[in-house]
C-alpha cells in the first residue's frame, strides 16, 4: 500500500492551481452571500427595531429557520432551483441574514437612551438620529454579526458538496472518494480554516477603521 501521509507539502505545491481555484470559488461564494445578506438584513433590522410587534415575528421566524440543518436546506432548495451554485448561495444568504439581523437589532436596542435623548434635544430629526447616532453606536454589534456570519459561512460552504458546489468541500470529498487521500482532505480543510481567519481579520480591521472613537476611549 502506498504511503498516505496526513499532510504532504508536495501535494500542496503540485496542486497549487487546483487549491487556489477552489479557494477563490469558496471565497467569492462566501463574500457574495454575506454581502447580499448584509444588504437585506441591516435595513430589515432597522425596520424591525422601530416596529415592536414586527420584531417578535421576524426574530421568531429567523430562529425557526436557523434550526433547519444546512444540508437539509440545500437538499430542499436544489431540486426546486436546480443543482449547483444557486441553491447553495440562497441557503448561505438565509443563514448569514439571520445572524446579521439578530446582531443589528440587538445593537440598535442597546443604544443608550440618554444619548438618543441628547441628540433629539440638539434638534436632530429621526433620520439624522438614525444615521449619526443610532447606526454608529450599533456598528460594533453589526460588525460582530458580520464576523460570525462570515466565519460560519466559510465552514458551511463545504456542505454545498451535497448539491455539487462546495468550493474547498469539493476537494475534501474528492480526496475521500479518491482512496481516502488524506493529504488532499487535510490541505482543503486547512485552506478553509485559513480563509475563515483571513476574512475574519479583514472584517475586524474594517470595523476598527470605521469606529476610531472606540480605540480612543480605551486608551
Amino acid at each position: 500500500m502506498a504511503a498516505n501521509p496526513w499532510f504532504s507539502w508536495t501535494y500542496v505545491v503540485e496542486n497549487a492551481d487546483t487549491l487556489w481555484e477552489h479557494t477563490v470559488q469558496h471565497a467569492v461564494l462566501t463574500v457574495e452571500a454575506v454581502a447580499i445578506a448584509t444588504v437585506i438584513a441591516v435595513p430589515l433590522g432597522i425596520l424591525v427595531s422601530r416596529i415592536r410587534w414586527l420584531a417578535g415575528i421576524v426574530i421568531g421566524t429567523a430562529a425557526v429557520l436557523y434550526t433547519v440543518p444546512s444540508l437539509a436546506l440545500f437538499a430542499i432548495l436544489a431540486p426546486l432551483l436546480g443543482i449547483g451554485r444557486t441553491p447553495v448561495l440562497i441557503g448561505l444568504v438565509a443563514y448569514a441574514l439571520l445572524v446579521i439581523l439578530r446582531n443589528t437589532v440587538a445593537g440598535l436596542d442597546a443604544v443608550d437612551p440618554a444619548v438618543l435623548d441628547a441628540a433629539r434635544g440638539l434638534g436632530y430629526g429621526p433620520g439624522r438620529v438614525l444615521v449619526h447616532v443610532s447606526l454608529p453606536n450599533a456598528l460594533p454589534s453589526v460588525v460582530a454579526g458580520l464576523r460570525l456570519a462570515t466565519v460560519s459561512t466559510v465552514a458551511m460552504v463545504t456542505v454545498g458538496v451535497v448539491v455539487g458546489y462546495g468550493g474547498l468541500g469539493q476537494l475534501m470529498f474528492q480526496g475521500f472518494r479518491n482512496n481516502f487521500y488524506r493529504a488532499e482532505i487535510m490541505a482543503a480543510t486547512l485552506a478553509c480554516v485559513l480563509l475563515a481567519v483571513v476574512l475574519d481579520v479583514a472584517i475586524w480591521a474594517g470595523g476598527r477603521a470605521l469606529t476610531p472613537w472606540r480605540e480612543r476611549r480605551r486608551a
Partner: peptide
C-alpha cells in the same frame, strides 16, 4: 468558542473516516 466555528465539520468527518 471562536476557533471551532471556523473548522469545517465535513473536513473533520472525512479526515476521521480517512483515518
Amino acid at each position: 468558542g471562536n476557533a471551532t466555528r471556523a473548522v469545517p465539520t465535513l473536513g473533520i468527518i472525512l479526515l476521521l473516516a480517512a483515518g
